[in-house]
């Protein structure tokens, strides 16, 4: 390597590495340290207490409830969002494939593409407040009112421990699907149309076309979407914080508690920043484990076209 190019490489990399070190690596390191202290977050003083916070974590019922809820979110949200996203994208992209003999979308595909994207433009706080009203437990709630028309008794969506968490998961799925519809339709658009024509000539059914051709050809996109959705689902903080109660109780009775919200309550309600940081570190490990596992599980040969 010539001296000139070495200088170029070093100078090009120095700034990003420095920024990464200061803004990412150093806070991580500090977090690990804070999680080993009893810091209450209000004064500069803190005492090193070793692994006490982690011992307490392992024995903390609410922590395990939160972990379980996060795990549910990581399994349900990506699965449901990807399934719905692929379904809608396929409908928009090739819905009328049979009827008209070509890869054409349903009537008004452009409109659907825009409409599906609407929820994604709203902030989670707005969506949370909106759905708190939709889920109003009395018969005047939007959802209960609609169910009332078909004779179903009002459901206490956010007040009953059986329905509260699923109701919140549904909101996140509603919020996320639109973006993935757009992502998958654009991925599908990049598949050459003649492949589909050839398949049709060979008598492939729509079902076969989807499973044997469309899905494998956009698998990279689906995989990235799945990992991203999973990491996103590990959060759940904002929606639980907005929808459970003023100040985010994670209620009723911890039935919607997730790690992010539990961390928040520990830090800002109980002023136990050391313990909260230990929860944060646990959340980080969970995120890393999920990313590693999902990348391994979804590894699949790339199809060239």
């Amino acid at each position: 390597m010539r001296a000139g190019s070495l200088r170029f490489v070093v100078s090009a990399l120095a700034v990003p590495i420095l920024l990464y070190g200061v803004l990412v690596i150093s806070p991580y390191a500090q977090s690990f340290y804070i999680s080993l202290t009893d810091w209450n977050g209000l004064s500069p003083e803190r005492t090193f207490i070793g692994l006490d916070n982690y011992v307490r974590l392992v024995r903390d019922d609410v922590f395990w409830i939160s972990v379980w809820h996060n795990v549910i979110a990581v399994l349900v949200i990506p699965a449901a969002t990807l399934a719905l996203g692929l379904f809608f994208a396929t409908m928009i992209h090739v819905g009328r494939y049979r009827a008209r003999g070509g890869g054409r979308g349903v009537r008004g595909a452009a409109v659907y593409r825009i409409v599906y994207f609407f929820p994604h433009l709203l902030s989670i706080a707005v969506v949370g407040v909106l759905f708190s009203t939709v889920y109003d437990p009395t018969e005047s709630g939007l959802l209960n009112g609609a169910l009332g028309l078909v004779g179903i008794e009002p459901v206490n969506w956010l007040g009953s421990r059986d329905t509260a968490y699923p109701a919140m998961l549904a909101v996140i799925i509603w919020l996320s699907v639109g973006f993935y519809v757009i992502l998958f339709t654009s991925a599908m658009s990049s598949i050459p149309a003649d492949i589909f024509e050839a398949a049709r000539l060979d008598g492939a059914s729509r079902w076969q076309t989807f499973w044997r051709m469309t899905l494998p050809l956009i698998w990279d996109t689906v995989q990235v979407a799945g990992v991203y959705l999973g990491i996103h689902a590990l959060d759940m903080f904002a929606i639980v914080n907005v929808m459970s109660a003023a100040g985010g109780s994670g209620g009723p009775d911890n039935a919607t508690q997730v790690l992010g919200n539990y961390l928040y309550l520990t830090a800002f309600q109980n002023s136990e920043f050391g313990y909260a940081t230990a929860i944060g570190v646990a959340l980080l490990l969970l995120t890393l484990a999920f990313a590693a596992a999902s990348l391994r599980l979804t590894r699949r040969e790339r199809v060239e076209f």
Binding site: F237, A276, G280
Partner: peptide, 21 residues
């Protein structure tokens, strides 16, 4: 700083350990 503590990682939590009394 709030977000920093929140994520257990945040980029501004540098303030957290820089104690100045």
């Amino acid at each position: 700083a709030g977000l920093g503590a929140l994520a257990g990682t945040g980029f501004l939590s540098g303030c957290a350990t820089s104690s100045s009394t």
